[in-house]
Nucleic acid binder design. Structure first.
Lengths: 159, 159
DNA sequence: GATAATTAATTCGACTTCTAAATATAGTTT
DNA sequence: AAACTATATTTAGAAGTCGAATTAATTATC
């Protein structure tokens, strides 16, 4: 028995629940959470490039390329060279992608959201700040390697 | 902006930090967190079978089979038929596996553990109970499909 | 005792995720 | 202008993860 066993098991439960939800979504809508996150970023970022998307949703560039490949294959997004710098690529939603995005499910389990929204405000804050505290304690070591940017820095339009 | 954006990003930070730590461990020790969890379960469970291991560390049986394959390939565990029921297989550590298990690193980042252990007791409890609450809110839907067992039910020896 | 239902484990196929290496373009230096 | 250096993206390779299908063995039912 370690002093962090309970923490570890709770974290496993959370990541597993998220993973299972992602797989359920894929069966139901043909979209995983990660793919949805990418589409979400495309909508929210001004002139979205793979690297900007990667930063905004905390994935490596290689992973984003992979996810975009899949979205392209399903006809939901397209790669376009729009800027003058020919190294960069902009990702845009197709008509079909727009539609799918409109109808997209939430990024967290509806049951979870229902419960979460039932909580008092202070309770929500307590949960969020605890989780965020753990996140900070946990990813501190990575921060040098790949700095967490603020939303502003990557051109998120707040709305 | 969704009302759960901050939560989502914190959860991503946590899962990412864990994943990166796992990959770092693999480079340094040739063992991932998942593989370590399996070895841990083997030590703690009486007559460990793939299914018992899967239940105890919250992974599907298929995943555990996969992890065991890898451990076998690296000479750390062996599959043995010990019981009378010829369907079941018991997993045992090899000599080398024992050794590796002794020297194994912690399952969470040492930096995280250092910070965690510096906290006051009440603060630790606050974090753990918040995380565990989120876990409960999140995996409630899965519980029917695959019930979370107590440690006792799968034969964990406490200590 | 033969057939059906259940259980344990594995295999298969699909997806996510990473790092490191490869490509291509842009910017800087001399 | 040629040769570095830096940046953006993709490719390659390796693990983890699951559900569904498969195989083998056990238990239950008639």
């Amino acid at each position: 028995m370690k002093d962090y066993d309970e923490l570890l098991i709770s974290l496993r439960r959370i990541t597993r629940a998220i993973d299972l939800y992602s797989k359920r979504l894929q069966k139901e809508t043909n979209l995983t959470i990660s793919q949805l996150l990418v589409m979400d970023a495309i909508v929210k970022i001004d002139k979205p490039t793979p690297s900007a998307i990667a930063k905004s949703i905390l994935l490596s560039q290689a992973t984003v390329t992979n996810l975009i490949d899949r979205l392209v294959k399903n006809g939901l997004v397209e790669r376009k060279r729009l800027g003058t710098d020919k190294r960069t690529i902009n990702i845009v939603l197709t008509q079909q992608g727009e539609q799918k995005y409109q109808d997209a499910p939430e990024l967290l389990q509806s049951e979870f959201l229902r419960k979460y929204r039932e909580l008092e405000n202070w309770e929500q804050h307590l949960l969020v700040s605890a989780i965020s505290r753990v996140a900070t304690m946990m990813d501190a070591e990575e921060i040098d390697a790949s700095p967490i940017l603020t939303l502003g820095e990557i051109g998120i339009r707040d709305q």
